[in-house]
């Protein structure tokens, strides 16, 4: 991320100095202010969803959801403690109904709880959670349907099926890619032990 940030800043500044140097400061300050405005509007959204989630947590509903999703979770993330499992289950369910902003707080908490205090590299299960959120398998694209109907679409729900198909396929591809990349890594790491024990059996 540090690299992406530095690259975006330097490249944009060079281009803007050439095309419209007068806009640089207004854009940067406007964006910073926009970030604050966004955070405040997010605060309202988070208060609502995290309030609801706390009720669901205290009533045992999330634990129940986590139990239902456990076999899937175990396959995707490996063994996690119960609290993390509940957070992951909440994140995935919220993403599926198009409430990405409601999905954010449990994801932040889950990743925080999965991380060791001094860990600087994302683990396979964190990357999995991130890719699942990014590919966001979608049962109901609520925002998009809202926009389409506000523009007078005669059939706003047309998009539900193709969105479901496409997001399911890309989610599956994303999951498989994460599995592939991190399985290979694990094998590469495991190889030295194996060679010492079994005398260099090819994997």
């Amino acid at each position: 991320m540090a690299l992406i940030f530095a690259f975006m800043m330097v490249a944009s500044l060079i281009f803007l100095m050439w095309s419209s140097p007068g806009d640089i400061l207004t854009t940067a300050l406007g964006a910073a202010g926009g970030g604050v405005t966004l955070a405040i509007s997010l605060l309202g959204i988070f208060i609502f969803w995290m309030g609801l989630l706390e009720i669901a947590k205290d009533s045992g509903l999330i634990a129940k959801l986590a139990r239902i999703l456990r076999p899937l979770n175990r396959w995707l993330f490996g063994k996690q403690d119960e609290e993390v499992e509940g957070l992951i289950a909440t994140n995935i369910s919220a993403n599926m109904i198009g409430a990405g902003n409601a999905a954010t707080p449990p994801a932040i908490e889950a990743i925080e709880k999965m991380a060791e205090p001094e860990q600087t590299k994302a683990s396979a299960s964190m990357v999995m959670l991130f890719v699942l959120a990014a590919t966001s398998m979608q049962l109901l694209p609520t925002t998009i349907i809202g926009i389409l109907s506000s523009h007078g679409s005669v059939d706003p729900s047309f998009v539900i099926l193709p969105t479901f198909i496409v997001s399911t396929v890309t989610t599956l591809i994303g999951v498989l890619l994460v599995k592939l990349v991190y399985m290979k890594k694990r094998k590469r790491k495991a190889r030295p032990d194996r060679t010492s024990e079994e005398g260099g059996t090819p994997v």
Partner: peptide, 12 residues
């Protein structure tokens, strides 16, 4: 997502 940890390297 990673803002509450010290994680900087996101790998793949």
């Amino acid at each position: 997502y990673f803002s509450k940890t010290k994680i900087k390297k996101l790998g793949w």
